[in-house]
Amino acid sequence: MLILNYGKIPCNQDYLTMIKKIYLLAFLVFAGQQIQAQHWKWTVGLNSTDYQYKSSTGEAIDFIKPLGGMHASFRYNKELIDTTDLISKFSKTAIFFGNHQKLAKIASLFRYELGVNINQFNATGDDKNFIVNYQTNFVGLHAAFGPEVKVYKGFSIALQGNLGAQKLFSGVQTLISNNNNANYDLADNENFSPIHVMLGYNLEIHKILTDKTSVFVSYQKSSTFHGWTAGKPSLNFAPTSLSIGLKISKF
């Protein structure tokens, strides 16, 4: 089994309070950059998370299957080079890109973004005499970089490489068997409680609605990379996220 830890089940009200604090913190941090900001992005969607688990003997456990969970994010997004802004400046950077316009055009396609997110990495499994469910709430930070290319009549495609960190806020394992039903807190479990570094990619399709707003759909794939050590179990999360979003530009 993955978990055999007893503990108090976290309160949903505490979880909602934490969500509010995270969004407020993100707003305060990014508000100071508003003059330079180009885009703000909000997304909401679903996760399907593959639990890649190995036992202490190295045996891969395959009876645990993905269970749907929530995904939401708030992000600040900016062009690497804003050619429109450079026109009004006489800096060394403006002069350089003024003399290398092809390079400036390529650089203007690339964007970077920073943000916060909330994820539920849930799973369920059925093995012989028991059923196990995992309900988790993670909060994290997000950084991404990649190009966004206009393709046709207000549509554009963005492809980004992602780097993120996720920390368990609350989580419960429910074990159901013929003789006993029990809930275990995941807060102190070595497979869930550490900060999880995640790498992956994100594909977005955007459609402009007005000169300052657009909507988009997003597909994101990422994974942790915890190594396995003999005598210790290991667990990697590999979520796939599908979401919709709103982007507000240049305000």
Rank of each mutant, 00 (worst) to 15 (best):
T49W: 01
N236T: 04
H206T: 08
D188L: 09
L4E: 13
D188P: 01
D211K: 15
A144R: 01
A107M: 14
G164I: 01
L2F: 09
N178E: 14
K221L: 12
L4N: 14
Q173T: 08
I64W: 03
T43E: 15
L159P: 03
S48F: 14
R111T: 09
L2P: 15
K212E: 07
A143Q: 01
Y15F: 10
K21A: 13
A94R: 07
A165K: 01
F251E: 05
K8G: 06
F251I: 09
L80D: 04
I248W: 02
D82H: 05
K232Y: 10
N122M: 03
S193N: 13
K54I: 06
T17K: 14
A165L: 08
D188S: 14
V139K: 02
I87A: 12
S223E: 09
I61P: 03
F237A: 01
A187M: 11
L199Y: 14
A123L: 07
Y51K: 04
D62S: 15
A123K: 02
F74E: 00
L141I: 03
G164P: 00
A72G: 06
I176G: 06
Y134I: 02
K232D: 08
W228K: 03
V217C: 08
L80P: 02
T17L: 10
T57L: 11
E59L: 09
E204F: 05
Y184T: 05
D14M: 09
L235V: 04
I87Q: 12
G115F: 00
T210A: 09
Y6D: 15
S156V: 11
S218W: 02
L24I: 10
W42Q: 03
T83A: 11
G200I: 02
F110A: 02
T43A: 06
E113R: 03
F192N: 00
V44H: 05
G125D: 11
I22K: 02
G164Y: 00
S56N: 11
E59H: 12
Y51I: 04
A94T: 08
G45D: 05
N47G: 01
D14C: 15
L28A: 15
G164N: 02
F74G: 01
H226Q: 12
G245C: 05
I176F: 12
N129H: 13
H142P: 00
A26F: 08
I106W: 12
T83S: 12
I244Q: 05
V151S: 13
I35N: 13
K153H: 11
K250G: 03
N12H: 09
I157V: 15
I22G: 00
F110V: 04
W42M: 06
I61C: 10
V151N: 12
